[in-house]
Write a protein that binds this DNA or RNA. Structure first.
Lengths: 343, 343
DNA sequence: TGTTAGCACTCAATGTGGTTGATTGCTAAC
DNA sequence: GTTAGCAATCAACCACATTGAGTGCTAACA
């Protein structure tokens, strides 16, 4: 069966209406929708076809139709027209200069949640490709050293490490010079095995210390110790605005995914390698079990070189895809603009 | 009317039963409760009295009784017998040495939530009375300095500060020595105006820099910039286990309080000055509006000198007060023990 | 051939009335 | 002061009827 232009219009009308109301849509509603000037009976015939094609479904015999996951998919891929909106709040947000990447991301999550009325999450960037600007070791006492690593974008990480054999102030001084001259301007990716070997040799007696320090640095940078990539969330409670998600089982699962964050990490991992800048998961496509009744829109952002992270918007399947996608697109291009202006 | 020993027993029995079931408790249930050997009719008479005294209430005419906030209050204050339990999981937890205060607190929140089946929150300590062990300034470029402050307990804070007039490496070296010799071993409380004045004088040309640095240090320590005291939460979704809290309005309000955290801060502020180590808020006593159907138990902890924070357990009014209070008490004494052994 | 009006049919949602069972308050007897 | 007994209350439950939105089908129409 061919999906002709009228069928498309009808499908579009059904989905649009359903996005607003969340109630099954009947043939009469569509026949009065404006764009089509046909009777409800005609609509019914077309609807039967659309149902056979698996794009819409009846929750029960005498109800209207609601879109299937497939229907949404078609809508997102083909039917949706993107209107790029004025995002006054976001615009304003970017005019206020920000210093800390972390707190900016938090604010961004909050803003997205408020703007969309869905739940938002942002993963902190991984710094694999960021250049090291400064390494500073300080001796706390014979067995404890504080390492501070500053990377491009003024991202600071610190660590207290405990060493087996005592270190002196002189050792620290030597190590500071050694590490800085060797690692300054390098990215984590560039710290190769041969570099590590040569560092070890130069360190002499402090071989063991160098290793723990390198490890700490690597941990600091990858952000990968027990805390995994940090994830900021906001607006999880927005899901209560959508009755189809706010029954106990659903809500509890979704909220708890937001609380534990482990599952969100799997979402980030799933999305971050996608070619497409924007990725839409509908219903069962979602990589998180508790979100099988949701849709998720993700976008990969990049702040300057190598600082890449993922943004996700989680809402009901009848999500306002246009708005979300265009908001994310605008946001991405704003971020690009800002981080290129600043260089 | 006098609350004689039998009335007390009956009230206790009603509350105990209600804590378990969450259903209104009838007279027959109590008459078969064991401890009392009287008929249901007698219980009914006593119940009528207890109701008149405002300790219990009937949700509707032909239902059993449930405790009022006042009833719970009496129970918590007088009737409850604390059994100090084996807390195997907590015990085990403390045997594993921990390095970072922050991640320990996170774990503790998770543990408490799991152990109690309620929601848990912990506020990060304020470090007002903690001694500074090390201050390390590093020059990023002419206008940017990284400050790292290490305090007792290996708490590390850092800040990137921007200065108006350029600084040289030599300036930094001088300032490092100056600040460390002046501030080492001091607490934030001890950094007096006269100390600041003398530092400024010694700094000479770098007066302005010293001020920004001191400010940054103070901010680092008090934890008081825009992020307020950090709060760690866990188990917010546990509230879905209690039907009386899991209807939409309630759940949404409570979860959102946990998400936004602002309101939790007001709870911390409210609790932290109380004389009593353990504080119980019942129903409307709670300082958070959205938690008027909950009970909250808070405890003030102290890790070594001056690092004080607040723990809170949030659950339904029919909370297992005994368990929660005794868990918190044990936890407090464990923390005491550990942080005194370590000194 | 595609479109439409009309009609019988379906079924969730809502309402109604009766039944059940837990529980109470009261009273009279112990 | 305690208890047994009893009528009264009322949420919860179930069965059943009603309603109304919506469908599919058919026959008539353009």
């Amino acid at each position: 069966m061919y999906l002709d232009s009228r069928k498309m219009k009808i499908l579009k009308a059904i989905i649009r209406t359903y996005l607003e109301t969340g109630e099954p849509v009947g043939s009469r509603t569509i026949s009065r929708y404006g764009e089509l000037n046909v009777s409800s009976a005609t609509i019914r015939n077309e609807m039967a076809d659309l149902e056979e094609m698996g794009l819409i479904i009846q929750p029960h015999t005498s109800a209207g139709r609601i879109p299937t996951d497939q229907g949404y998919r078609l809508y997102v891929d083909e039917l949706m027209d993107e209107k790029v909106r004025e995002m006054s709040s976001l615009q304003h947000f970017f005019n206020t200069k920000m210093d800390h990447v972390e707190s900016m991301l938090k604010d961004m999550a909050r803003l997205l949640a408020r703007d969309t009325n869905y739940a938002a999450m942002i993963s902190a960037p991984r710094y694999l490709e960021n250049e090291i600007r400064l390494i500073q070791l300080s001796r706390l006492d014979a067995y404890h050293i504080v390492t501070v690593v500053v990377m491009e974008g003024n991202v600071v990480r610190n660590h207290v490490i405990t060493v087996e054999s005592p270190v002196t102030e002189a050792d620290i001084l030597r190590l500071n010079i050694l590490l800085n001259s060797a690692l300054d301007g390098k990215t984590l990716d560039e710290i190769s095995l041969s570099l590590i070997r040569s560092l070890k040799e130069q360190a002499g007696d402090n071989r063991e210390v160098v290793m723990s320090i390198l490890e700490a640095i690597s941990e600091s940078i990858t952000n990968s110790r027990e805390e995994k990539p940090e994830i900021y969330t906001s607006g999880a409670t927005n899901i209560f605005k959508y009755p189809e998600l706010s029954d106990n089982t659903n809500a509890s699962g979704i909220i708890s995914a937001f609380e534990e964050k482990d599952q969100l990490i799997s979402l980030v991992n799933e999305s971050k390698d996608k070619d497409h800048e924007i990725q839409v998961y509908i219903g069962k496509e979602a990589p998180i079990r508790s979100m099988q009744d949701c849709s998720i829109v993700t976008a990969n952002y990049e702040l300057g070189k190598g600082m890449r992270g993922t943004i996700g918007i989680i809402g009901p399947k009848r999500m306002d895809y246009e708005h979300v996608v265009s908001t994310l697109k605008t946001l991405m291009s704003e971020l690009d603009r800002i981080y290129h202006d600043e260089e």
